[in-house]
Design a binder for these strands. Structure first.
Length: 270
DNA sequence: CGAGGGACCTGGTTGC
DNA sequence: TGCAACCAGGTCCCTC
């Protein structure tokens, strides 16, 4: 579920309940996530949440001293509970606040993460070598063009590499490449500056639209209903194998690239 | 250095 | 109906 738009929507949803609130307790029921949740995490208890942010698909909680980093992995989600609710299956940890709200993390596949950082959370080693945010001014055609020279890997793998640009997941990689008319298997180093300009625009556009959508379908982070889904997307190629291309009606193809399913129109994308 | 593949997990769907 | 195989929105890390 969580691609960048969903993480951004999660951030906006939980922010009002956490900002400037004090953490009373962190209750870890299942520490075996992507990385073991260490006992050090209790150091966050008693601290004020001074800042919330996002870097790629990582959620950042800046505290008085140190901070917490949360990743939703493939199947994670967060929601805010305003009153006591018994934990269900895969509810791996709670961040309880003095305002009696509780941020609850659910993740069936346990690819998510909760990491403590003694220093400033923005300086966490996992964030150090990440590429620019796709919605920032640093993400330009020039940048992609320069980074891609001599690179022979498929463009789809290139834009999904977080060291190149963060937050472009499997769904939106397919979507953006369709919008830009670029075949997902094309070598990154064999794409012109001009075509990269179209790709940058497509990535921005699809992510911005999805954030707007996420804002409507993921609005409710509070309450017992929880578990928001975001399926109201209008996807142009993703998961549409065999169905007609919206531009030329040719059947959409599915191909595994870099061990991930990729969808494209063999006519519109070159 | 770049490229490729395995690893970490559970659960839903598909096919025999 | 039962069960195995396969697939799923991420990304780190090891090997070649």
């Amino acid at each position: 579920m969580p691609e960048l738009p969903e993480v951004e929507t999660t951030l906006r949803g939980i922010q009002p309940y956490l900002l400037d609130q004090r953490i009373s307790r962190i209750n870890v029921r299942e520490p075996r996530l992507r990385w073991l949740v260490t006992p050090e995490t209790v150091k966050a208890e008693g601290q004020l949440v001074k800042h919330l942010g996002r870097r790629g698909k990582y959620l950042l909680l800046g505290l008085d001293r140190g901070g917490l980093l949360i990743h939703l992995g493939m199947s994670g989600s967060l929601r805010v509970l305003e009153e006591f609710t018994p934990p269900g299956k895969h509810d791996h940890f709670d961040i309880e606040l003095e305002n009696h709200c509780c941020l609850r993390f659910n993740d069936p596949r346990r690819f998510g993460a909760l990491l403590w950082s003694a220093g400033s959370i923005e300086l966490h080693p996992l964030l150090r070598n990440l590429g620019p945010e796709p919605l920032s001014v640093e993400f330009t055609a020039d940048y992609l063009f320069k980074r891609s020279r001599k690179r022979r890997l498929a463009i789809k793998n290139f834009i999904m590499d977080g060291h190149i640009v963060v937050g472009v997941g499997n769904i939106y990689a397919s979507e953006a490449l369709f919008m830009a008319g670029i075949h997902p298997s094309r070598q990154a180093g064999r794409i012109s500056l001009q075509r990269y300009a179209g790709l940058v625009e497509a990535i921005r556009d699809v992510l911005e639209r999805a954030i707007r959508q996420g804002g409507t379908t993921l609005r409710d982070f509070v309450g017992s209903n929880g578990a928001p889904g975001y399926f109201a997307q209008e996807l142009l190629v993703y998961d549409r194998a065999g169905m007609g291309c919206f531009q030329c009606n040719t059947p959409i193809k599915k191909k595994v690239i870099g061990q991930r399913s990729s969808y494209y129109c063999p006519v519109c994308q070159r």
